[in-house]
């Protein structure tokens, strides 16, 4: 109990300040290590490139991604770098603009899923006992559910619901965000629960409890900052999976709808002309998805390596 007696000498406010300073120091250190990893730099370059495309969208595309022309199914050329699709839209423009569709859906879904998962995981890990037992079983059952199939089930049904239309502001994208976030919640909860259990019996938690702090205070001000690292890692990994899931759902036709230039949707639209040897409407959106997920995962992997060193 030496820590408890030391903290009684200083006020708890200065202890928190010191802890803040230490964390800032640690963050600077991690950032320095991150910048030295080639995987991180390459990943960031890819991610930033697609972010810029998503933000600027029509301002940088050579043609309008939505207007169709009579010049259908043109092979890649100097005029149309990636060719044109079956209704004559410029594929290069559509691929650049398509970054917006996936990037407005996947990262918010990951953030929402990680937030919910952190809440559930902390509840399980901190209170243990019966709450934990019941929630753990439910999490286990959720983990057995195939994410894409449940996405198909919920999204196809949800399209018919008026209540859901109200809370999603009538937007398909918001609905996809909710569904993906919900499917990620139990996965995140399991990770956070493990992190909380490793922390909850440490001296600082005990001394906070002895000081008479409330459970909410201990969880948000004491435990949460100390499990920030695994949560950040989980978030970056989840963003990768969210892109994976969101583009699969679009491909299967229950995600973002036409005439959006979304990449998954574009692959599904280009599928029927592929047999005729028209390979470009499928290839370029596919490469776009591939580069974005690889970029995100390079960043996630570097962050994980730095935090777990």
């Amino acid at each position: 109990m030496s820590e408890a007696s030391a903290s009684s000498a200083t006020t708890s406010a200065t202890v928190l300040e010191q802890a803040d300073a230490e964390r800032k120091q640690a963050r600077r250190e991690s950032w320095r290590l991150l910048r030295r990893r080639p995987g991180f730099i390459i990943g960031m370059v890819i991610v930033v490139f697609w972010l810029v495309c998503a933000i600027l969208e029509k301002r940088i595309t050579p043609y309008d991604p939505f207007t169709y022309t009579t010049k259908a199914k043109l092979a890649p050329s100097a005029d149309h770098w990636f060719g044109t699709d079956k209704i004559g839209r410029d594929i290069f423009s559509r691929v650049l603009a398509g970054a917006r569709d996936v990037l407005v859906v996947a990262p918010p879904a990951a953030v929402l899923g990680v937030s919910l998962g952190t809440f559930v995981g902390m509840t399980m890990g901190y209170f243990r006992g019966r709450v934990d037992l019941v929630l753990s079983r439910i999490v286990e059952a959720f983990l057995a559910l195939p994410v894409v199939l449940v996405g198909l089930l919920v999204l196809s049904l949800a399209g018919t619901s008026s209540v859901l239309a109200a809370i999603t502001f009538d937007s398909r994208k918001v609905l996809v965000i909710y569904v993906v976030a919900l499917l990620f919640t139990p996965i995140v909860a399991r990770t956070v629960r493990a992190a909380v259990i490793a922390e909850r019996d440490l001296d600082y938690v005990t001394s906070a409890r002895l000081r008479g702090e409330s459970a909410t205070f201990i969880m948000t001000r004491e435990v949460l900052p100390n499990i920030a690292a695994p949560i950040v890692v989980e978030l970056t990994v989840r963003i990768g999976y969210a892109i994976f899931t969101v583009s699969t759902l679009s491909f299967l036709g229950v995600g973002v709808q036409r005439p959006s230039p979304d990449w998954g949707l574009a692959i599904s639209e280009g599928r029927d002309v592929l047999q005729a040897g028209i390979w470009w409407p499928v290839t370029f959106p596919a490469l776009a998805i591939a580069t974005l997920v690889i970029g995100v995962n390079l960043v996630a992997d570097s962050i994980q390596a730095v935090y777990e060193r």
């Binding site: 583009s247 692959i267 592929l274 047999q275 390979w279 499928v282 591939a290 997920v293 995100v296 995962n297």
Partner: peptide
């Protein structure tokens, strides 16, 4: 890391383009 982060249908589509349609080694249907 790269291959496991790409969705199955994307890998599938790219394989179909390269080995099915372009090279014609395998059936793409």
């Amino acid at each position: 890391l790269a291959t496991s982060s790409i969705p199955e249908f994307v890998t599938g589509a790219l394989l179909a383009v390269v080995f099915g349609v372009q090279l014609g080694w395998f059936e793409s249907v």
